[in-house]
Simulated scan of single mutants.
Amino acid sequence: MGTLLIPAQIAIGKTPTVNTSVSLEFGNENRGMILPWVTNTNAVAGAVYGTVVYDLSDHKVKTKYVSGWKDLSVDATGTTVDPLTNVDGVVIQDSHTENTDAEVTIGSTQTSDTGILILEDTDKAMILPKVASPHLNIINPAPGMMVYDTTAKQLAVFNGTVWSFWKP
């Protein structure tokens, strides 16, 4: 896998987006977006403000701010153990070899920012997957999952144990 530049708008799980303010949009099924799992946020070199990851060292969803990493999970009981198999999910991740050059860029500008998915446009946003009451409707969420709760009108993140909800 290599670098891919897509100067367009992308829709996943739905018909193409027609809103010119959107660079990436997801369908309205009971599915979320799973964030990249990192061993520890201290090991993430060159993270820019707004980077969002799932930190395996403490099982929390975090975002990069000016003063460091901000915890979005709040709850400290996160886990990567699959409740159906009782197997730690890190084993699944560890059995694969990461291609550190893999990167997808959506947008019209090029920066030196590093990441798996980079949305480059300065005048477009990403619309998260929309799910009504994700804690009730996503049957088996993965650690590091993120959605927009259309019922509560809040950002929802799953730390492997519980959902945390954020409202601006």
Score class of each variant (00 low, 15 high):
A76T: 11
P83L: 08
L72E: 03
D82F: 05
G68H: 00
S73F: 00
V81Q: 08
D101S: 15
L84C: 05
K70T: 12
L84K: 15
I92K: 12
D75Y: 15
T77Y: 06
D75R: 14
V90M: 05
G107F: 14
T85C: 06
A76D: 14
E98D: 10
E103M: 15
D75E: 14
V90R: 08
D88M: 01
V87P: 07
I106A: 05
V74I: 15
G89L: 01
V87E: 10
K70N: 09
W69F: 04
G78N: 12
L84P: 11
S95D: 13
E98R: 04
G78M: 08
G89M: 01
A102N: 10
A102H: 11
A102M: 07
T97Y: 08
V90I: 00
D101R: 10
D88Q: 02
P83G: 03
I106R: 07
T79H: 08
L72F: 02
V87D: 11
S73E: 00
H96P: 03
D88C: 03
T105V: 15
T77L: 09
T80I: 02
G89S: 02
G89C: 02
T105W: 11
W69E: 02
N86Y: 10
W69I: 04
D71S: 00
G89F: 03
V74W: 08
N99S: 09
D75G: 12
T100F: 11
N99F: 07
G89R: 05
A102I: 01
A76Y: 01
T97I: 07
V91E: 13
I106S: 05
D82E: 10
G89D: 03
V90F: 07
D88N: 13
V90P: 02
T100L: 14
S73W: 03
H96V: 13
G89N: 07
W69Q: 03
V81I: 14
T97M: 03
W69N: 04
G107T: 11
L84F: 13
T100K: 13
L72Y: 03
V74H: 09
H96C: 09
G107I: 08
N86I: 04
S73M: 00
V81Y: 04
L72T: 00
V91Q: 14
T100Q: 09
G89V: 01
S95G: 12
D94T: 10
D82W: 08
G107M: 10
V104Y: 06
A76E: 05
T77D: 12
L84R: 13
A76C: 00
D101T: 15
T100W: 08
N86A: 11
T77S: 15
K70H: 14
V104L: 12
A76I: 02
E98S: 07
E98Q: 06
